[in-house]
């Protein structure tokens, strides 16, 4: 039986670790590789590096970060942020990323998902989606709307429909990030996560809003997520990887406890 996964996301800006609150106010909080190495040694199951750098010089730094991570950390890790083409995806994969996350560019050009799946495999193609609650309407019947450009542009696209379409186009996994919950530490959007997890046959990683261990428990049980993504809970030293996994294990969630 598969274990549920504890995943941590490191936002990287110009090669440094940053943390955003509701997608704005990013500040640098350390060396991403040092953090990643610590989490790996503590038994983290998977890592996500999210590049929030705008400049092209920053992109080269990201490749360097990925290569350094790949030579020190032997668990799966994915990279996302600003991936616009199959070439971007292939370059990151060759640098050592197990998976590549597409987001905004996939909404603008859904064929990118299929092209990535063909080039690097479905298992390595992750569709990351930013979702905000909205008034249900014809275009967004579920009341969960896809937004792009890091949360700035609503798309009149229903998140449940987009998740299903992403799967059909070849995505092997979904990251579902609630913009309403992101950075609040008040808990994941459990309803959003559950509705998407029930709509697709591929694994779902819940993201946004984790502040306490019970939030992870809720989203991995009631929310039916396969993995829970955490950031500030770990980055600021409030909890360790081991504490979170022990909490979940003690409540009957199957976790990888020996490593």
């Amino acid at each position: 039986m598969l274990s549920k996964r504890l995943v941590s996301c490191l936002d990287v800006r110009d090669g440094k670790l940053a943390k955003s609150v509701r997608f704005v106010d990013t500040k640098d909080i350390g060396d991403p590789i040092e953090k990643a190495r610590t989490y790996y040694e503590e038994g983290l199951d998977e890592l996500v590096f999210y590049d929030i750098t705008a400049s092209s010089e920053g992109r080269d730094i990201l490749i360097d970060v990925v290569e350094r991570v790949a030579s020190q950390i032997f668990i799966p890790f994915s990279v996302g942020g600003g991936i616009r083409s199959v070439e971007d995806a292939t370059r990151l994969r060759l640098a050592g990323a197990e998976k590549v996350n597409v987001n905004t560019a996939a909404v603008q050009n859904p064929d990118l998902i299929t092209a990535c799946a063909d080039a690097i495999g479905s298992q390595s193609t992750v569709l990351s989606m930013d979702v905000r609650r909205a008034e249900p309407c014809d275009a967004v019947p579920s009341g969960f709307e896809i937004v792009i450009h890091g949360g700035r542009t609503p798309m009149q696209l229903d998140a449940i429909e987009w998740a299903k379409r992403g799967e059909a186009l070849g995505a092997g996994e979904l990251v579902v990030n609630s913009i309403d919950a992101d950075g609040t530490k008040e808990g994941y959007d459990v309803e959003l996560t559950r509705r998407i997890a029930e709509a697709v046959g591929i694994p779902v990683i819940a993201s946004g809003g984790a502040g306490r261990p019970e939030h992870l428990y809720e989203v991995l049980t009631e929310g039916r997520a396969d993995a829970a993504l955490v950031a500030s809970m770990l980055h600021y030293g409030e909890y360790t990887v081991g504490e979170l996994k022990q909490y979940l294990d003690a409540r009957g969630v199957k976790m990888r406890m020996r490593f």
């Binding site: 598969l2 199951d45 298992q123 092997g172 694994p203």
Partner: peptide
Amino acid sequence: DPALKIPHIGWNA
């Protein structure tokens, strides 16, 4: 069981 996903991706014993 439809709840079990294929591909089998993740950590297993």
